[in-house]
Computed example of a mutant assay.
Amino acid sequence: MISRLKDCHGSTCLAASVSGKERDKRLLDKAEGLVHFLSDLNPYRRPAGTSVAEFLDARVAEPDRAIREIGPDRVAAFVAEPVLASGGVLRRPKTTTVVV
């Protein structure tokens, strides 16, 4: 499975396993080695000199790169929060285009 750092998906064992919140990782039971975590999506934590658009473009490319690195036959799911709530109440910036 692939998830993102700072995402929260619940407090059951499987949900805690795919959650990228540090507190959940310390305090909740979870399955080890089940999830590959991608970078945090918070544009306020982007590297200095990086525009929001550049930061988000790099984050959009991460799942595809991770699937290729891990192997498509070894990835069952990508778990994501459409609106990052408990990780900082982050909504999609207006500078991005949603592709469905």
Rank of each mutant, 00 (worst) to 15 (best):
M1N: 14
I2V: 10
S3K: 12
S3T: 10
R4T: 02
L5E: 13
K6V: 09
K6G: 11
D7K: 13
D7L: 06
C8Y: 15
C8G: 08
C8T: 09
C8S: 14
H9C: 11
H9A: 14
H9F: 07
S11Y: 01
S11K: 02
T12V: 07
A15G: 03
A15N: 07
A15F: 03
S17N: 01
V18E: 07
S19E: 01
S19Q: 00
K21C: 05
K21P: 00
E22P: 00
D24N: 09
D24R: 05
D24P: 02
L27C: 06
L27R: 10
L28D: 11
L28F: 13
K30V: 04
K30C: 11
K30G: 11
A31I: 12
E32Y: 10
E32R: 08
L34R: 00
L34T: 01
V35H: 11
V35N: 14
V35Y: 06
L38V: 09
D40L: 01
L41M: 09
N42Q: 08
N42I: 00
P43D: 08
P43L: 05
Y44R: 04
Y44G: 12
R45Q: 12
P47R: 08
A48V: 00
T50E: 14
T50V: 08
S51Y: 04
S51H: 08
S51R: 05
V52A: 05
A53K: 14
D57P: 03
R59N: 09
R59V: 02
A61G: 12
E62W: 03
E62R: 01
D64L: 05
D64H: 09
D64S: 11
R65C: 01
R65L: 09
R65P: 00
R65E: 09
A66H: 13
A66V: 04
I67L: 09
I67D: 14
R68N: 04
R68P: 00
E69T: 04
I70T: 07
I70L: 13
G71N: 07
P72I: 03
D73Q: 13
R74D: 13
R74Y: 10
R74K: 12
R74F: 14
V75S: 06
V75W: 05
A77V: 11
A77G: 12
A77H: 14
F78E: 01
F78D: 04
V79M: 11
A80P: 00
A80E: 10
P82Y: 14
P82N: 12
V83C: 12
L84P: 03
A85H: 14
S86T: 04
S86V: 06
G88R: 06
G88K: 08
V89H: 15
V89P: 05
V89K: 15
L90D: 05
L90S: 08
R91H: 15
R91C: 15
R92A: 14
R92V: 11
R92M: 15
R92L: 15
P93S: 02
K94T: 12
K94F: 08
T97L: 15
T97C: 09
V99F: 11
